[in-house]
Design a binder for these strands. Sequence first.
DNA 1: CGTGCTATCTTGACAATGTCAAGATAAAAA
DNA 2: TTTTTATCTTGACATTGTCAAGATAGCACG
Lengths: 213, 213
Amino acid sequence: MSKSVPPKPTRRTYHHGDLRQALVAAANCILKDEGLDALTLRAAAQRAGVSHAAPAHHVGSLQGLLTAVAAQGFVHFHASLETAMDAAPTSPLERLRAAGRAYVGFAVDNPALIQLMFSGSRLDWSDPDLCAASDRAYRQLTDIVRPAAERLGASGEEDIRELALMVWSSVHGYAHLAISGALDRGPAGARPPIPDLPGLLFGRWKPGGGVRI
Amino acid sequence: MSKSVPPKPTRRTYHHGDLRQALVAAANCILKDEGLDALTLRAAAQRAGVSHAAPAHHVGSLQGLLTAVAAQGFVHFHASLETAMDAAPTSPLERLRAAGRAYVGFAVDNPALIQLMFSGSRLDWSDPDLCAASDRAYRQLTDIVRPAAERLGASGEEDIRELALMVWSSVHGYAHLAISGALDRGPAGARPPIPDLPGLLFGRWKPGGGVRI
DNA sequence: CGTGCTATCTTGACAATGTCAAGATAAAAA
DNA sequence: TTTTTATCTTGACATTGTCAAGATAGCACG
């Protein structure tokens, strides 16, 4: 995924070439190394090897940088789920389970990035890139759930949407709880190995067996 | 709940009396009115009617103020779920459903506060008040799920913990998605009336009826 | 090849914020 | 009444986002 090696802060020419992408890469390094609070415009500029005011011409404001980072995050997120599903068996439920695991895995591997992507107020949702990337990820969710839902006997678009929302809420909620550290502080013993939780949804409670709810 | 009337910024005596509580109250007003990003030490001090450096003696740092606010938030959160359950029928599943609705309702009513309570890095988790308040809320979760789980035939502490985690993830995930605005941007039509979603978990998929999963 | 033009980058500045130090003030203690 | 302590204020400094003005390099055009 997003590699953690800092981009070389030296440059030969006065013009950078592709400072915008360099800033996004630097921002990803900061997110990985120091967390979301440490991601400032000046820090990203320094890692990219430019002056503190250079980013303005390429990302506008801090919100612009965060938006660009989040947009790329949604692209990587989408790709991560896609490859996980490709490596899974073709059964709709197995693919759904693989996607859920990838969802949580991505969040645990990139906590600050996921935090940013779902931070609500920090991003500029009028940005076309961000909207396109997130729309694609959201559509992917429905596409993953649909075959599994039909296999489960859910008929009608309303049922599928409802089930997709339930799956999304469960997986996203677990990912968010894991990231926030709530599971480490929760009721004693309520801490299964983190990347395996989606098995909770589709393991013991799989259709036809286990507890019905 | 946390009332939104600003505390009177005037005071007769030089000493404030209970500046710490006044700061927490002011912070809650700011959270409600302007969101988490607007909650600064200086803004809270101004709303409390004191100088910008006065909070240091009572909450230490910004992290101290956020921690105090979050601790009180967990207390209110706990109380909110408790009263909702008291007003519900005595059936374990009905109480669970009422608690889920209250969970999402609290989050939708206090988005910035919930965001802070589950923000992970911004709080000082060595603070005894915060730990006590959150522990009580987490224990409440298990206590709510246990009777419902036993009614569903879940036997053994392991099953109960697993089911509690599933319920928690679902409800928390939906609340977080709703707060972050993701549902407004999600797949078209996937937006049920917000405070009613927990009915998704316990409505169509209630034991003995609807889709089994 | 020379001359402007424009995008790009730098420097400098300002307001807001968290934090610290020093002093002023009030309440309590002696 | 005097001293001590807790509380609050004032002032300062570093950091950050943002803007304005100027410097620089790449490019079009003659």
